[in-house]
């Protein structure tokens, strides 16, 4: 709750500074790079309990997202996230498209047309996005889904983006012993136990990219 002037001089690693559209574009670019880097691993995780397309689906979606951000004008953080969400819904081709798309779009709409947003506003917007994802898919914590990474991440965002990234990573690892209750993996019942959820894994990449964007400035 400090003064804006003081906030801007806060040292790297704290999350007290405001973020503009450029920051959000960098976040999306870093997320796309992470998805590109980890695509094979995501698909491998998905081949164990899903239909082996999570990596390639997200690769396609995030590549389209970055291309759209290059082409279209996005003046505000909200506009970046709304455009990102629209691209993911229309290009991913699997269930993660509407789920991640809803996360981004709802978060973007919650941010509105502010030119700069605070970490607290981003946390609130992502919480709204995560709630919308839960509503869309009907999943809750413990169902072995992306929510198992996203919910602890959003809870930790108030502390720091790095803490949120760690919480998401821990959340993704915690899906290993869980039994899937949503999506194709739920058909496997007990056989889904022992595998890390691909959606929780990619969610952790998304939050890690946010911490990376923060650390890089």
């Amino acid at each position: 709750m400090g003064r804006a002037g003081a906030d801007r001089r806060a040292p790297v690693g704290t999350v007290s500074r405001v973020m503009d559209a450029d920051f959000f574009r960098r976040w999306m670019e870093l997320a796309a790079a992470a998805v590109e880097r980890e695509a094979d691993r995501l698909t491998e995780l998905d081949s164990a309990i899903g239909d082996a397309d999570h990596g390639s689906n997200l690769q396609r979606g995030f590549a389209a997202l970055v291309a759209a951000l290059d082409k279209e004008e996005t003046a505000t953080p909200g506009a970046v996230l709304v455009l990102a969400g629209r691209q993911l819904i229309s290009t991913v081709g699997g269930a993660s498209g509407p789920l991640y798309g809803t996360l981004m779009r709802r978060a973007g709409k919650t941010l509105g047309d502010a030119a700069e947003v605070t970490p607290a506003q981003l946390a609130e917007a992502l919480r709204a996005g995560v709630t919308a994802v839960a509503g869309l898919g009907g999943a809750k914590a413990g169902d072995k889904t992306m929510l198992d990474a996203l919910e602890p991440a959003v809870d930790a965002l108030g502390e720091s983006f790095a803490a949120a990234a760690q919480a998401a990573e821990r959340g993704a690892l915690a899906t290993v012993p869980m039994r899937a209750r949503k999506g194709r993996a739920s058909y496997l019942g007990e056989r889904s136990v022992g595998h890390q959820d691909p959606g929780a894994t990619s969610s952790a990449l998304l939050i890690a990219a946010l911490a990376e964007a923060e650390a890089a400035r």
Binding site: G94, A95, G97, P98, L99, A132, L136
Partner: peptide, 15 residues
């Protein structure tokens, strides 16, 4: 099922 249902819902809810 699955992404077919979710995509329609997402389009109706957010777009």
């Amino acid at each position: 099922l699955g992404s077919a249902v979710l995509t329609v819902k997402a389009l109706l809810a957010e777009g």
